[in-house]
Write a protein that binds this DNA or RNA. Structure first.
Lengths: 203, 203
DNA sequence: GTCTATACGTAGATAGAC
DNA sequence: GTCTATCTACGTATAGAC
């Protein structure tokens, strides 16, 4: 009994997902240019040529991963933004999200950063990245400003505070990726939030 | 009048330094594997083949840069360590050093990190890197512990606090490297130190 | 849909001229 | 000491067999 068109489509979707999943680790570990298509193929358990059946090029895979990662974070930030939580709670939720991602999928954040730094990247992926950067920091900054108005976030330039938080989260993803195990003594959300919160608001 | 042996030696030293300086930027920007020898050559204003007169391979240049950067930071940390400053002041001095380096030579910190992450690296460079990681964090951790004993640093696992600080500094270098200009609103030392210091010890 | 074999280009490294 | 020309290896992408 031959496979139906639906079966084929399902296989195709699965393979695409396999490739993307495998690529995430390899890209984060070795970077875009150092990653060979053969690396991806073997990581995904596929033959070399087959990868080209699903993606036109290495850069296309990279761009796709970036798109997904960006969308993921943006979605979460938006859902938090429209919630009725307090500004500090929103910041906490966002940090927890990023930290959790850093632990379980450190590739994500790191690949986004690579995309920022790298030169040779498809224009579409670059556009997504730019949007991500401005949109996220814009949102986080608004939380900080609201918190300052209610007196739960310390005074100071929101841009600076936003950057400080970004740096901490960024560095965490980096650290997580380098040390290939989950190290004991991971920084807690509270430690990071101490940079922003007014004395006494955290335990 | 022919050049003396000293002249030749001086020229040789200068060229080596030229190559290293030029390489730092390129490596940080593009990563080890994406960097071509031709990139380095043109960045240094030299011909392609000449680079091989001074270095045997691309990896050797990279390793040399890493060694320098590591030594630089280690030296500073040691000099601070033996000073009679308070633990919090030592931490502040170290942060200021790293932040300043991040601003003026963001390549440094970023290249060290790359070296951590990358797989294909000369064994010697790897050894230097490992030493760096353990030595630095060991020193910083000792400052944190001393500060906790004198009551100027908050209670908590020193390993965790050390990591948090490391993340922030790490992320800053990354950010600095990605946004190719010196952005307004750079995080201040105080903001980072708020993660560690007891309430009221900072302005 | 999946694989292996091949053509093409590019980058690392060397040799030899000036 | 400095350059250009060349050899070689490897990685991308494609073509064609199963």
């Amino acid at each position: 009994m031959p496979r139906t068109a639906e079966d084929n489509q399902r296989i195709k979707d699965e393979r695409r997902e396999d490739i993307l999943t495998a690529s995430r680790t390899v890209f984060a570990r070795k970077g875009l240019s150092a990653t060979k298509m053969s690396d991806i193929a073997s990581a995904a358990g596929l033959s070399y040529g087959l990868v080209y059946h699903y993606f036109d090029s290495k850069e296309e895979i990279f761009a796709e991963i970036v798109r997904h990662a960006v969308q993921d974070t943006l979605n979460f930030a938006s859902s938090v933004d429209v919630s009725d939580a307090s500004p500090l709670e929103k910041l906490r939720a966002f940090c927890e999200f990023k930290i959790q991602k850093s632990v379980h999928r450190p590739e994500m954040h790191l690949i986004i950063t690579q995309a920022f730094a790298t030169d040779a990247l498809p224009p579409e992926a670059l556009a997504a990245i730019r949007q991500y950067g401005s949109k996220i920091s814009e949102t986080v900054r608004s939380w900080i400003q609201q918190g300052q108005e209610t007196g739960h976030i310390i005074e100071g330039d929101p841009v600076e505070l936003d950057m400080a938080l970004f740096c901490a989260l960024q560095g965490l993803a980096m650290l997580q990726m380098c040390s290939r195990v989950v190290p004991r003594g991971m920084p807690s959300v509270d430690t990071f939030l101490r940079m922003l919160s007014v004395r006494g608001d955290l335990s």
